[in-house]
Nucleic acid binder design. Structure first.
Lengths: 298, 298
DNA sequence: CACATCCATAACCGGAGGTTATCGATGCAT
DNA sequence: ATGCATCGATAACCTCCGGTTATGGATGTG
C-alpha cells in the first residue's frame, strides 16, 4: 500500500494532540480535512486507529502500533532527502544557507567573502527561513547551515557557532505615545500587546515576547506573524509592540516605525548552526571556518 | 518535503530499468504519466535525478543518492504497515491467509478445522492473491501467511511448509484437436500457444509454461492472465493451452474446458508460506501447527 | 531512406484534498 | 435547568493533480 508522508505527519499530530481540532490547527488545515484524511488512512489500512469520543481521539492498539513505527519512516525519508540535496549541492557547487531576517548583519558580507576566498568555484545561496518553522529547512537538508538567533526550536539537534551578540530594543508604531521617550524600560511595556511568532516555536517565541523578564506577568498577543514583512506591517499598524535586535533599526528602518533602546532585557545572540544529523562535508567545514574567522576579527 | 511512496516506487522502477517506457509498462501506467511524475519529483527536490538521452534515462549524482536511500524508506513503511495489520488482527482476532486459486485443495478444510480447535475464538479469512504479484500481500502484512504453489517470486524471503504434491496436467479448450487423446505427452504441446502469468513473476511464470522441460525451445504466449477467471476464459476461448495442477480438473471443471493427464512434466507442490521478516506470533504458530498436522495425516 | 525507439508535449477527464458552513452530542458553568 | 463551549461528523463546493490518449521531435538502425 502507498502512503503520502503528509498523511503520516497528520496522523502523528492527531496521535500527539489527542484532539482533531487542535491537531488541525497545528497542521494549518481545517478540521474537516483532517477528519477525512484520518478516516482515509484507516480505510486504506483496514484498521481502526482511533477511538472517537466527546473528549477527543484516543489511539487503539493498531493506532499505537502505527505511532511507534512512523518515526522510522519519516526519518528514513528525511535522510534520503538530505542525501539528495547534499549530492546536488556537490554537483552544482552551491552551498545553501538559511537566515532569519537580517542574518548575521554586517558580518554577513565578511563571512561570504572569506568563504569565497576558500572556495572560489562555489556559490552561496541565502534562503530566508520562516519564523513559523525556522529549523525545518535544516532538518530536510534544504539548507546545509543557517544563521539563527538563539534560542530556536530543536536547537539541541544542531551544532552552534556564536557569531555576535547585540542588545535588544523595542519596535513600535511611530505615532505610539511611548515613542516620545528616547529610552524605555522593559517594565513600561508590560501591558502593551505584543507581536509574536507562532505558538509552535516555543522558546523562540518566548524569548521575543520577553517572557523571561516578565516574572510570570501574562502577555497580551496583538498579532502573530511569520515573516518580517507581516511583522513590520503589524507594528506599523499599531497591533502591538515588538522586541527586536538593535540591528533591525538599520536593516528594517521605516518612517512609520520607531525603534527605541530598551533596558532591563537580555541581549540577542546570532549563531551559525548546522544539524548534528548531517554527515559533515568539507565545504561546510570551510564555510564554518570562514564564519569563525569573520566572527573573531572585529 | 512530503512524498508519496508511490512516487518513490516509480523512481526506483525508472532507475532500475534505465528507460521510461519500460518502467511505465512495468508499473502499469502510461509513459507520459511517468514522465510527469518523475519530473515532479525532480522539481520538488530541486535536483536533476536523471540524465535524459535518446538511449534512456541515466542516474545523475543526486539520482544515485536517492536510489541508495530509497529502500530504507519503503522498508520502514512496510514494517509500519505490517505492525498495524498485526495489531489489528490481534485486536479483532482475525487471521488473514492468502491463497492462489484452489489453495490447498481438499486439505484446506482439514487445516481450518484443526486451527479452529486450537483457537476457537479466532476467525480465518482467506484472501485470493493475484498471479501478477502473488507475494505482495505477504510483504505488506495484508495476509500473515499464504497457500502458494512453488516456486513463486521472492520465495527466498519466506519460510515454507510443504503440504502436498500433485501431478500437473494440461488444460485446453474442449474442442481442441488434442483433447481427443486421453493422455498427452508434454513434447506434443511444444508448438501450442500457452496462457501465461505476467512476465514480472519470473520463476513462477517459467514453471507454468513448463520452461524447464522445453530444453530451450521458444514458447508462444497466447495470452497473459492474472486471475483464474481470465485464465479459464482464455483457455475456453482457444487462446492457448495451459499447464494446471491435477486438482484444477475438480475445482475448475467447465464444459468448455478439457483437462488431460500429462507425462514428461514434473509435479506441482503446494506449501504454506509466511514471511521471514515478520515477527512470528503465537496465532500464526498455531496455524502452522494445524497445517502441519493436516498435511501429515493422509 | 524508411522505420523503430525513446522522451516530451498537449488536451482532456475524474478524483482527491482542501475550503466554509453547519449539525448533533456532550460536558461545564452560571 | 439553561446556555455556552468544545469536539467530531457531514455536506456542498472548488481546485489541482494523476491518470489517460494522441502526437511530435530527435536519434540510431536495417
Amino acid at each position: 500500500m502507498d502512503v503520502d508522508t503528509r498523511l503520516l505527519r497528520y496522523f502523528r499530530a492527531v496521535a500527539e494532540e489527542g484532539n482533531l481540532t487542535k491537531a488541525a490547527a497545528r497542521l494549518y488545515i481545517s478540521q474537516p480535512a483532517l477528519t477525512k484524511q484520518i478516516r482515509q488512512l484507516e480505510d486504506q489500512l483496514g484498521a481502526t486507529l482511533f477511538e472517537r469520543s466527546r473528549s477527543g481521539m484516543a489511539l487503539t492498539g493498531p493506532g499505537s502500533a502505527l505511532a511507534e513505527s512512523i518515526d522510522a519512516v519519516l526519518d528514513a525519508w528525511d535522510r534520503a532527502e538530505r542525501a539528495v540535496r547534499a549530492a546536488d549541492a556537490e554537483a552544482s557547487k552551491v552551498l545553501r544557507v538559511g537566515f532569519l531576517a537580517s542574518a548575521a548583519n554586517e558580518k554577513t558580507q565578511a563571512i561570504l567573502a572569506a568563504f569565497r576566498k576558500r572556495r572560489p568555484d562555489w556559490r552561496v545561496e541565502l534562503r530566508q527561513a520562516s519564523w513559523g518553522a525556522p529549523a525545518a529547512a535544516l532538518a530536510s537538508g534544504e539548507v546545509v547551515a543557517a544563521f539563527m538567533r538563539l534560542p530556536f526550536p530543536n536547537q539541541e539537534d544542531c551544532h552552534l557557532l556564536e557569531l555576535l551578540t547585540e542588545p535588544r530594543c523595542v519596535a513600535m508604531a511611530a505615532n505610539h505615545p511611548l515613542a516620545q521617550q528616547e529610552t524605555l524600560r522593559f517594565e513600561d511595556l508590560l501591558d502593551e500587546p505584543v507581536i509574536a511568532a507562532p505558538g509552535a516555536t516555543g522558546a523562540f517565541r518566548d524569548h521575543w515576547i520577553g517572557a523571561e523578564a516578565r516574572g510570570g506577568r501574562p502577555v497580551k498577543i496583538g498579532a502573530v506573524t511569520e515573516h518580517p514583512d507581516d511583522w513590520l506591517t503589524a507594528i506599523a499598524n499599531g497591533d502591538g509592540i515588538a522586541l527586536a535586535p538593535e540591528s533591525a533599526a538599520r536593516y528594517y528602518a521605516r518612517p512609520d516605525i520607531a525603534y527605541r533602546p530598551l533596558t532591563g532585557i537580555t541581549p540577542s545572540t546570532v549563531a551559525l548552526v548546522w544539524p548534528k544529523a548531517a554527515r559533515p562535508t568539507s565545504v561546510l567545514g570551510d564555510f564554518i571556518a570562514a564564519a569563525r574567522e569573520a566572527a573573531d576579527r572585529r
